[in-house]
Amino acid sequence: MADEGNGIIRLRSSDGKVFELTESAAEISELLKDSPREEDDEVTEIDIVRVASPCLEKVVEFMKHYDEEKMKEIPTPLGGSTFNEVMDQPWYQDFVSDEKMNRDMLFNMLSAANFLGIKPLLDLTCLKVTFQITGKNAEEIRELLRLPELTPEEEAKAREEHSWIFEEA
């Protein structure tokens, strides 16, 4: 039987690519922690059919780093007015920076974090999304989230319903 935390877990993405990480690094994921495995197995392989390989690669990167450097819990209310003020750990700042992660990837990560039950990653990506939303009006948020555009009738109704939100009369 593999020692507690020393086993290897292989995650297979929806497109068949395999990523390895230690059991201790995988502990962070509720899903992986709870997944059943044989006692005498040194290597456990799990299919993550909902996550594609580019996203799963980043998730595994996060899990491995988290195993070495824990992410501080994000306080609410947020202790700053910018992302970098709230998240003061450089690696995590860099991990979700605009240069390294585009919007699609961010939302995929968010979805994957939720799916795998990785709370710190979920918090980190939610925080990033929060700062992307902050300061934007309803139209910009809709665009950011790629919500379908409203028809003129729908827009008129929404304006009537929410006239009190709009700054201009």
Binding site: L78, N114, I133, I141
Partner: peptide
Amino acid sequence: IAEKLFGTDVVSDIFSFLDVRQLLRFVCV
């Protein structure tokens, strides 16, 4: 993209991070 958020704890997490006025704008989307 937004469909990835609906019905999950994700939205609740985002709600908890948002300032009250921003929460209103977000919710009304």
